[in-house]
Design a protein around this nucleic acid. Structure first.
Lengths: 272, 272
DNA sequence: GCAAAAGTGTTCCCGATACACCCATGC
DNA sequence: GCATGGGTGTATCGGGAACACTTTTGC
């Protein structure tokens, strides 16, 4: 039992796990085994313990619910409507994660909850304000596609550029120009061609690429980063200098914002 | 007394109030009257009550400490290091606000704390992780300069373009090209020329501008917005559809992201 | 009439877009 | 040898950036 002079809001994390299966973006949802919204679908997540950071809480919840660890998690929003949870005042922090489609290890939930994948384009109605949370997560996902290398997280460690391009086309639901896409790949410093090739198909083998080692997961924590463009002016200490429990995998994935967000609309064909 | 089965983190808000005085960006700091960090300088802020949103808490704290109301507040980050407050586990949400330099109403604090302005470029050492919070706030401020009209909040309701340009030059510590700046003004839909002029100086009178009425404060709440660029693809419901207690002034100020963040580096002369 | 800031257009350059053909493999 | 996807270069266009002179007032 904990006793406080004044009542406190509870703090939770909610996590959107994105994957691509059957050429469509999917989101992991759990069937709630308890009230409120018992029987409804909801995002995985749960209460933050007093001795862990938010991202550590998100990692822990995911591990409990999916047996997967070491997610690349990104904080993207705060949900603080006073009545968003009928039981109590609950402030929730949203994170999103990306997993490769083959990691579909499903997923006996901790509380006899059943977890499964649902297509982003036709989500059922959800508990709490989780629909809003997903929308904001998606909005962040799309903008991160061209500003970070994290879209590679949808794929295996080594991937062909055709596979990678398909990730963008699936999420953006737009055709992408192959030559311009490849020009972008080499204009960023995110990716590197390996010596390996993927052969076996009935055509020329494709070179395999991977994320540059320098960008591999390190010991940096997620922080909501609203802007990362390069203004060489008085940024003083680095914006990421705060938050420091080291248990995450975000650094590098947000490095090297060579180009500003205008990238987002790059080489998305102007058709329609 | 409030009693919970499991201990809870406390939730606080910290607010950075920016203003420009003596041609320099300043930040409001208070002298802490109580431990921890008694006597140190710190950001205004305080605990969130269970029946108010974060932004409402920020508004309330500011009103208590500065007698000013109706700030334009923007949420920009979450600070959740486990040991950031020596007393207890405290998760803080950062907001920033902008006030015109003449509103320097200072500011007998609520707890016999003395509040005053400090130049951003030479801040003293601060309590807690408040230095990190300020750095992230500044980083958000600079990126918002060209993506919203909120820089006008540094000025009176009606302002000349020279005054407005000086805001940008002060914050970015760069010279800005007058013609390109004015082209940007008219390329956005944020501002409108009034029929009034500012005369009296020893030169040609300057036209006064103001923020377009359509962009004036309305009933929308602040949400951390990582991306707002226009991808006309499946943004599904609007990203700002969440968070809805109506007590804020943010809408419009974030509307109409016509251009992506590349704007940030606009018409900042390449001199050094 | 002179000092001092207001106001205004054009050129250049680079990066974003569009676009079509040859290459290597499996069968 | 043919079907299939892998791989590559160029020309155009638009927006960002640089740049100088005329206008209007106060004294």
């Amino acid at each position: 039992m904990a006793t406080y002079k004044y009542p406190r809001a509870a703090t939770t994390v909610d996590i959107i796990i994105f994957t691509i299966r059957e050429q469509a973006l999917h989101v992991l949802l759990v069937n709630r085994g308890i009230d409120p919204f018992k029987g409804s679908l909801a995002l995985p997540g749960g209460f933050v313990q007093v001795n862990e950071t938010l991202i550590a809480a998100a990692q822990r919840e995911l591990q409990e619910e999916t047996q997967l660890a070491n997610f690349h998690l990104k904080m993207f929003g705060v949900f603080d409507d006073v009545n968003r949870d009928p039981r109590d005042r609950v402030i929730s922090i949203g994170f999103y994660a990306i997993v490769p489609s083959h990691d579909l290890i499903v997923l006996a939930g901790s509380d006899a909850e059943h977890a499964d994948w649902y297509p982003f384009e036709s989500l059922p109605s959800l508990a709490f304000d989780h629909k809003d949370i997903i929308d904001l997560a998606f909005s962040n996902l799309t903008s991160d596609l061209y500003n970070t290398c994290l879209a590679a997280k949808f794929l295996d460690e080594e991937f062909t550029l055709a596979e990678f391009q398909a990730v963008y086309e699936t999420i953006l639901t737009k055709k992408v120009d192959k030559r311009n896409f490849r020009k972008w790949i080499s204009s960023t410093d995110y990716f590197i061609k390996t010596d390996n090739k993927k052969s076996g198909a009935q055509h020329r083998p494709a070179a395999l690429y991977k994320i540059k080692d320098a960008l591999k997961p390190s010991e940096k924590i997620a922080q909501i980063q609203v802007n990362n463009s390069e203004h060489e002016n008085k940024s003083k200490s680095e914006t990421e200098s705060n938050n420091n429990t080291n248990n995450d995998y975000n650094k590098g994935y947000e490095q090297g914002f060579k180009k500003a967000l205008s990238k987002i609309t790059n080489f998305i064909k102007q058709q329609d």
